[in-house]
Design a protein around this nucleic acid. Structure first.
Lengths: 241, 241
DNA sequence: ATCCCGAATTGATTTCGATCAAGTCCGACC
DNA sequence: GGTCGGACTTGATCGAAATCAATTCGGGAT
């Protein structure tokens, strides 16, 4: 029985090999058993320390990967060193681009991270033969595009306080989408990274953290551990309707 | 004979009906003659005056379209009225999303525009049956994603002068990609739109135009017509390597 | 041509975030 | 425990862009 295209949601993981299955909870219906076997044979688990570069801007990308654990930041840099984080990828996102030789940005592990890599050329062969697979990848890219455009509004039109609140809201909701109240989490980024994500300086980020703390929007322990007593209040500070 | 996936470039137009063919120069190899006929039967040409809204943020999208002529701006708005242009689509770009009911942003004709529309449900059926089609749409979305992320760097890390120069460079290269020297064009956006694209105010945009004019980076006639005597110099002002 | 009105420019002033400069915290290591 | 060093915070000052306020420009209607 044909599955309707509209039944596929962007939250579905596009590609899953045997090594990923357990964590991702279920096989990928887009692949035949043979393909799954082939993929699993050439996949490999890798652990990345925080700060490890996965691929540099403009470099050849020989592999794609599933993020099993951790957060990967995508960065664009100007010749003079100014840089901007243009995307954050959370587990279980897919990383990389079949049919693209060069990476348009560098990718770096923001936290300690575990990924499951696949040879790019193998994926390309599979994508060509399994339209379902391309559709799933396409859906993930559309999600990334919407997120990028949301963030353009944040970068272009929000003030420092709204930017920092928007970042905290993003992290809070990505770590635990179910949470409506009383969420707590460790920040996956340093102040410097947060500044590069928000188009601010570390000093400004720090001051806004302090302000939000004094307004009881958040509590902070050990610089990294954040508690949000009222996520809707945070959302208001972020300027999101 | 199978065409290799890698032979398809992002510059290829994903979908072309008979009404588009002449202008787009060639049929779409992804469609069978029957499909082409079906598509052409349900396609319709529309002229849009500058300022006409194609679809509102969060609205139902019943159609997709090829832009035949003109420029369409994609906008996200905050509840208090602040807005950000999150994308500019030039002819012959594809507009809309098969398999997405709601538009994530509003789309509005920036200039007088001509589009060729297709019913969304028809495209969805075709995409499901022609994997090649999905691949082409996927490539266009990837291009949009790269452009959005490039622009995030501009919004987050460039100063007003670099932003305005980046905008002019973008327009100059999109209007006539071949031009290396001495290009001239009409701006497709008002100062207010440019401000919304760059995350600035109209006053700041205006002042930067004046500065660039005084530095002989550009010449301006009648507020809209711009001449760039040395595009590489403009590129330097834009902070692009 | 003249009037009108919205778009664009220009000027004066304010403000928010950047910059410069200490200081403090905290974990790693001895 | 002590001390070293990087990450973070806090304070003082500066400056670029926002804001407020007039003009000026330009295109369309009469």
């Amino acid at each position: 029985m044909d599955m309707q295209r509209s039944d596929i949601h962007s939250s579905d993981i596009p590609i899953v090999c045997r090594a990923c299955e357990a964590r991702h909870g279920g096989a990928c219906s887009a692949l035949s058993p043979q393909q799954l076997g082939e993929l699993s044979k050439h996949s490999s688990r890798r652990r990345l320390q925080a700060g490890t570069e996965v691929v540099g801007q403009g470099e050849e990308m020989a592999t794609c990967a599933n993020i099993m654990r951790g957060v990967v930041k995508l960065t664009r840099m100007m010749p003079d060193g100014r840089q901007q984080i243009v995307g954050l990828q959370f587990a279980p996102d897919f990383l990389g681009r079949p049919f693209a030789a060069e990476s348009p940005h560098s990718a770096e592990a923001a936290t300690d991270t575990e990924i499951c890599t696949f040879p790019r050329h193998l994926l390309e062969r599979m994508v060509t033969r399994a339209p379902e697979l391309e559709h799933r990848l396409h859906q993930q890219v559309l999600k990334e595009l919407d997120e990028a455009r949301d963030w353009m509004l944040t970068l272009g039109r929000k003030n420092a306080q709204e930017k920092v609140a928007s970042f905290l809201f993003l992290i809070a909701t990505h770590y635990d989408p179910e949470t409506v109240d009383g969420s707590a989490f460790d920040l996956p980024l340093s102040r410097a990274d947060i500044a590069d994500f928000l188009g601010l300086t570390i000093e400004t980020v720090s001051r806004q953290f302090t302000k939000l703390r004094k307004e009881n929007v958040i509590r902070i322990e050990n610089n990294r551990h954040v508690t949000v007593p009222d996520i809707e209040r945070l959302q208001q500070f972020a300027g999101i309707d």
